[in-house]
Simulated assay, not measured.
Amino acid sequence: MPTHQEKDQPLAKEQPRRRQARGERRIAQLLEAAASVFCETGYTAASTNAIAREAGVSPGTLYQFFPNKEAIAIELGERLMREMRETYGEALAPVDPATPLEEAVAAAVDRFIDFNCRHPVFFTLMHGPDVPGRIAEEHDALLTTLVARVEALLAPSLPDAPAADVARTAHVCLAVYKAGLELVLGREGAEREAYVQELKHVLLRYLEPLVGDRPPAGPSSLTGTPTP
């Protein structure tokens, strides 16, 4: 017959799991509130009190999970960058050689625009003048990796181009996307979609003369920049 201690063991194990699950839900709640506040006021003007108020909790509850605003921004930024890396992986995957350049460019732009429209705080955090240094450093590292991958995807379509030319083309595409993204995020509805189409046209017109009739194995990825 089981002893009281043996009966209590499953319960003892379950309680920490429940506490952990509640803690994760609370963290998610606070991060969602922080995203809203950062987008509305910017990182500098945001405060832990405003974030707690947006989350519907007391400042004391917030401090149980985060010591300050910077810690909240870092956690939020890291989670979004993990998701962005997954988006990169999909958008920068090899493209079927039969895929028209226009279709490849459009698909990559749509994927990254969708991510940034769902997470506008990502752009706010990555481009603010006073974001925590750790976020800026990780974002710069991510960009460096992305540029290298874009160059690798471009190279087969530009076999005779010097490496410096391929790198330049990749950087120009990223810069075009970056500028276009800021315009897109500043619009809503039909006007936003119109700006997305303009961004696709600009990238396509830039790449067409360079790629010519060669398979579009890499150009699609050129639009896949983070939220630079």
Rank of each mutant, 00 (worst) to 15 (best):
L143Y: 05
R118V: 03
D130Y: 07
A91M: 09
I72M: 03
V131W: 00
R118P: 04
Q29F: 06
I72P: 03
E32S: 14
A35S: 15
Y63P: 07
A136Q: 07
A55G: 11
L146S: 14
D140A: 13
T48Y: 01
H119R: 15
L142E: 15
F112I: 11
K69C: 11
P94I: 10
D96P: 00
M84V: 06
V37E: 04
V37M: 10
A98D: 11
L62Y: 05
Q64C: 08
L101W: 04
P120R: 06
A98W: 00
T144P: 00
L146Q: 15
L80N: 09
F38K: 07
V131T: 04
E86Y: 05
R79E: 14
E32Q: 14
A33L: 11
G89W: 04
M81Y: 04
V95A: 03
F122W: 06
E86G: 15
G77D: 12
P100V: 04
V37S: 06
H139K: 05
V105W: 00
E32Y: 02
E78R: 05
T61K: 10
R134C: 05
T44W: 10
L62G: 01
E138T: 08
I27R: 15
I27W: 00
A52E: 06
A91Q: 09
T145K: 10
V109K: 03
E102H: 12
T41D: 14
T48P: 01
E102P: 01
L146K: 14
H139R: 09
A71H: 13
Y43A: 10
S58V: 07
R79V: 05
L125K: 09
E138G: 08
T124Y: 09
E83W: 08
E83V: 05
R22W: 03
E54C: 06
M84Q: 14
Q64F: 02
P100S: 07
R82M: 06
E70C: 00
A35K: 06
L142T: 12
V37D: 11
R82I: 00
S47K: 09
E70G: 09
P97S: 13
F123Q: 14
T61P: 00
G128E: 08
R26A: 14
L143N: 08
E32F: 03
L31R: 09
S47M: 10
E137D: 10
G56A: 10
E70V: 01
Y63N: 12
T48R: 12
G128K: 04
T44E: 15
D96M: 00
E75Q: 11
A108R: 05
R111H: 01
N49W: 02
A46Q: 09
V37L: 04
M81A: 12
T61S: 15
A35L: 02
G89P: 00
L125H: 04
A98S: 14
E86S: 13
T99W: 06
A93C: 07
M81P: 01
I27T: 10
V37R: 05
